[in-house]
Design a protein around this nucleic acid. Structure first.
Length: 254
DNA sequence: ATGACTGACGATGTCAGA
């Protein structure tokens, strides 16, 4: 299974580029974030024409997640399984090929000390708590987690001092997912530094390679032996009309 | 050039992203 995650920063703005990428790359499963559209307005046609089934959990203007799959999609769940409903559309789960796929768009969190940052931490903790009950089986968490877990995941740790992406509490939130029984599948396959999935639109960040690795594919232990390869498609960050995130891909046997 | 933010909403700005 070729599994990918991509924060497209608006499905409608990225549709042509996404379709071209799907036609060329043909991932089995793609988890999208920041689709920024209500489900009724989601551009399903061109994606179905490429052979994808869709599961949607969107909202107007902000957030929004979607799972595209070339294989049958079962047991779709929107948001958290229990507790109060999250007013923001950030989480979508489905079972595909016997693997529980969890598409997550964690809150950015603005800056440590803000209300949004508290929401980010609570959201990550709630996700870890829910996933802890499901990591005994095959499960993959793919998405924009808005955390660069190690200093090696940013181009310059000093430049990220005090940032929401590298803050110790945010990193503890990421670590909570590992404690819940997940493994950083991308990092397991690709230990070298300098691999980034997001570059700021501003200040020539991409040409300077001023990036951060905040888009992740985590897998339960049952899937670790199935890991085959991982990469980031930096080419999708190039040129006009690019999202500020590039697709992250992990290949699993089977 | 990989190049000096981008997208939604509904507008001539404001919010959010990370």
């Amino acid at each position: 299974m070729k599994l990918a995650t991509w924060n497209v920063n608006s499905i409608r703005a990225r549709l042509d580029r996404l379709c071209a990428w799907l036609a060329a790359e043909r991932p089995d499963v793609l988890c999208l974030q920041e689709t920024k559209v209500e489900d009724a307005s989601f551009p399903e046609g061109p994606l179905r024409a490429l052979g994808y089934e869709l599961a949607l959990h969107g909202q107007r203007t902000y957030n929004g997640v979607a799972i595209l799959s070339r294989r049958p999609v079962e047991d779709v769940a929107r948001g958290f399984a229990s507790g109060p409903e999250d007013p923001q559309a950030r989480l979508l789960s489905a079972t595909i090929g016997g693997v529980r796929i969890v598409d997550a768009y964690a809150p950015n969190g603005e800056a440590p000390g803000t209300e949004k940052f508290a929401y980010k931490l609570a959201w990550l903790a709630r996700l870890a708590e829910e996933l802890a009950g499901r990591t005994a089986g095959p499960l993959a968490l793919a998405g924009d987690l808005n955390v660069a877990p190690e200093d090696a995941d940013v181009y310059d740790p000093a430049a990220f001092a005090g940032d929401t992406l590298t803050d110790a509490a945010a990193r503890a939130g990421f670590a909570g997912l590992l404690s819940a029984g997940l493994v950083d599948g991308f990092r397991r396959m690709r230990p070298e530094p300098g691999l980034y999935s997001w570059w700021d639109y501003r200040q020539l960040a991409f040409p300077k390679d001023h990036g951060a690795r905040i888009d992740h594919v985590l897998v339960s232990r049952a899937l670790v032996p199935s890991l085959r390869a991982a990469r980031i498609d930096r080419d999708e960050r190039k040129g006009k009309g690019a999202s500020d995130h590039a697709p992250v891909l992990v290949e699993l046997a089977g």
